[in-house]
Amino acid sequence: MIPDRSEPGSSDHYGIIKMKKNAFLFLAISILFFVSCEKNDDMGDQDPGLYKITSAISEDGIYKVELYSMNDTLFEGYNKLFLSVVEVETKNLISEAELGLRPMMHMVDKIHSAPYENPESTASSDGYFEGAVVFIMPSNPDEGWVLNVDMNISGTETVTELEIPWVKYLEEPRKVKVTSDIDGTIYFVSRVEPSDPVVGINPCEFTIHYKESMMSFPAATDLTMTIEPEMPSMEHGSPNNEDPEHTGKGHYTGKVNFTMTGWWRVHFTLKKGDKIVSDDHYMDITF
């Protein structure tokens, strides 16, 4: 049979061109797709969104101190604290001050302090003095925390007493009390990171303080720490974790990997020199 060739301009002719066009358009689109996939994720620095916890006027009546946190309620464990200091009369925001934190737990029969980290003498660009307190027990209706702030502003010394409304107990503790197998020293290990755990590599940061007396909880800077994450119900761990190393002020920084969401248990071992301080403690992280 002689093929019936369609003339240019006939509907058939256009038909074939159209099909080709579609095909190439499709190709073009699918290639473009990949180009458009190359987006840059701008993870811009955002205001973390602070919650006001409490405020008080200094003893001399000159300053007002406001206490902020990244959480709406403070909790048992390591809390980063943001303090703003305002001169009451002029409403000036103070940006240079020596602030000393003195957390105090007023129990029914005794008082004790807690580990803390004093802020730098210069406020951040946002006007906050950033410090931290490890609340080593939660509040209860009869017993609560007070944060005394010893202030030295341009040579003038005063103190502000901030009543902490509530320090909540966490179902999943972020602070573990460890008693040394070597000498019975009491250590407080607190989780700083991961604060917002995700599947993948997470920063892993703990603070370790020890109890010198009821009023003194210095940073433990001479320990070595190893971690081992596990999913207890699945009986598996995760690979390629980095053991936290001391990076200053009792902070131990490393990396912890989570291969899926869910309930993870990070086992840790503390050593002092060659001696084991403790090897049977863990911190649960569920997300």
């Binding site: 207890p232 699945m234 869910g262």
Partner: peptide, 18 residues
């Protein structure tokens, strides 16, 4: 994959996702 663990030793475990 979402795994729902329902172990009586560890009740109320949240789902695991990967």
């Amino acid at each position: 994959m979402t795994m729902y663990m329902n172990s009586p030793s560890y009740p109320g475990e949240p789902p695991m996702y990967a």
